[in-house]
Write a protein that binds this DNA or RNA. Structure first.
Length: 200
DNA sequence: TCGTCGATCTACT
DNA sequence: GTAGATCGACGAG
């Protein structure tokens, strides 16, 4: 059930992003397992993608994780507040990454509510990348961790969405990326309550 | 060393 | 609809 290392090594990051919809993402942090199935992703297509941290082959202490071999997590801080969780794909040096923007929770919902300080369950609990990371207990100290570990992994439980249930569109919050901001690299499940911005 | 700003979310008007 | 939060990465000098 757990996706194999091989799954993450493909060189078509956009295809993998789309395929990840319906896969189950789990974390086991502090002995608590939380997770659900992925309903929204964005692709970051290596050093030629102006929206990516790796654009122009920019290697720094922060971005070096993206350049590693696929099958690991890339976690970083944005706006000084939010941690973002990405899955690194392809082989070493390609710098492909997939941002997990929204998850439909199925397991450990109470623990997520505590982490989010959200006593009443609302769709916003895992809608948006900052929310997903916080709800799942993901922080920068699991940056570069393997998705074969027992802390963080993705499962295939046979849930599949058809093309007419999936929408592709431009990515969010990447206006600075020029032409690349318009690429249809964002995928989400049409009509799912937990998608962050259904109307874009 | 310093200044700028970001793959965002929430609360409040 | 819009402002404020809040900090580290990065490029300029």
């Amino acid at each position: 059930m757990k996706l194999t290392e091989q799954y993450y090594l493909g060189n078509d990051v956009v295809a993998i992003s789309k395929n990840l919809l319906g896969k189950y993402l789990f974390t086991c942090i502090d002995g608590v397992t939380t997770g659900g199935y992925i309903v929204e992703t964005e692709s970051y297509n290596g050093i030629i993608d102006r929206a990516s941290h790796s654009y122009g082959n920019r290697r720094t202490p922060r971005t070096k994780t993206i350049f590693m071999q696929g099958g690991i997590a890339y976690v970083y801080l944005c706006y000084g507040i939010h941690e973002m969780f990405n899955i690194v794909t392809s082989v070493e040096g390609e710098a492909h990454a997939i941002l997990i923007r929204a998850v439909h929770p199925t397991d450990g919902i109470e623990a997520m509510q505590v982490r989010r300080n959200m006593p009443v369950l609302k769709p916003a609990i895992t809608a948006g990348p900052g929310s997903v990371a916080k709800a799942l207990g993901i922080s920068r100290n699991i940056n570069a961790i393997s998705l074969q570990s027992d802390t963080l992994w993705v499962e295939d439980r046979g849930l599949n969405f058809t093309d007419d249930q999936i929408t592709a569109g431009p990515r969010i919050g990447v206006d600075y990326a020029g032409e690349d901001a318009f690429l249809p690299y964002r995928f989400y499940v049409k009509g799912d309550t937990y998608v962050s911005k259904p109307n874009r």
